[in-house]
């Protein structure tokens, strides 16, 4: 009936216990525990709707954070593919010559010290609400056990986020999700400004900004800050 039926209950129980918050910082502990359970260097959880990133829930480390920013800047990477294919995306070595997907993300991720990149869809019933990203600093395939654990981590993380939302009122956002990274707000503000400057729709405005960030080899948040500050204009 739902994806959860495919999971081994013991595995779900074990992962749920590992991902249970220590009460300090529920978002960060979710991601740190996700990386721990999957036995990789870093993890990030992203919420996505209709192919558009709605926000990074968490990143377990500075490197994972950089990788999340990269995917957000470029609009490509394991989370985007895991979301659109609703299946795990496994790239054991971004440095391998035969890796052709995500040319821009690949370059940035390698520069940030990432070799393995893996994406797992977060499904609630039949609806995909986001993705779990796993990063590894050494090249190497995930074992079958790691893949099985990671799929359950994605499942449990999704239900954890829904659990947060279930106590928020209708129309409000879960307390735990309120303070998403501030740099994303700047990107959305800049998107609005560019849409006026270039007389395009907001969806096109973000594409314009992405292209600019890519061609000038800068993080999108830096470009956005300049747009909001008035030092970069489009049209």
């Amino acid at each position: 009936m739902t994806g959860s039926h495919a999971f081994d209950p013991e595995r779900v129980e074990r992962v749920s216990a590992a991902l249970a918050s220590d009460g300090q910082d529920p978002r960060r502990s979710l991601c740190v525990a996700s990386a721990g359970v999957a036995r990789v260097s870093g993890a990030g959880v992203v919420l996505i709707m209709q192919g558009r990133a709605l926000g990074t829930v968490c990143a377990s480390s500075a490197v994972a954070e950089a990788a999340e920013d990269l995917q957000f800047t470029l609009g490509e990477g394991p989370c985007v593919d895991a979301f659109s294919t609703r299946a795990p995306v496994l790239v054991p070595d971004l440095g391998a010559d035969d890796v052709v997907r995500w040319p821009s993300f690949r370059e940035g991720a390698l520069a940030a010290g990432i070799r393995g990149a893996f994406g797992f869809p977060i499904l609630i019933g039949s609806v995909c609400i986001g993705a779990l990203n796993l990063y590894h600093e050494r090249p190497g395939a995930l074992s079958d056990e790691q893949v099985a654990d990671a799929a359950v981590v994605a499942h449990v993380a999704g239900h954890t986020v829904l659990g947060w939302q279930s106590v928020a009122g209708v129309g409000s956002l879960a307390r735990q999700l309120e303070h998403l990274p501030a740099n994303r707000a700047v990107v959305h503000q800049a998107t609005g400004m560019i849409s006026v400057q270039a007389s395009v729709r907001v969806d096109d405005a973000i594409a314009v900004m992405r292209a600019y960030a890519f061609s000038t080899n800068r993080p999108i948040t830096d470009v956005a800050t300049d747009v909001v500050g008035g030092t970069v204009r489009f049209g």
């Binding site: 919420l47 709707m49 709605l54 926000g55 609630i124 019933g125 609806v127 609400i129 986020v161 829904l162 939302q165 279930s166 928020a168 209708v170 129309g171 409000s172 956002l173 879960a174 999700l177 998403l180 707000a185 959305h188 503000q189 800049a190 998107t191 609005g192 400004m193 560019i194 849409s195 006026v196 400057q197 907001v202 909001v228």
Partner: peptide, 28 residues
């Protein structure tokens, strides 16, 4: 779950739209 998923996505999307609107009004 599907009700909750929709609420979550709507709430997240609202925040993005509010930031975009700020940008549009600021520029205009």
């Amino acid at each position: 779950q599907s009700v909750l998923t929709t609420q979550l996505q709507t709430a997240l999307e609202s925040r993005i739209v509010i930031e975009q609107a700020k940008g549009i009004v600021a520029e205009r």
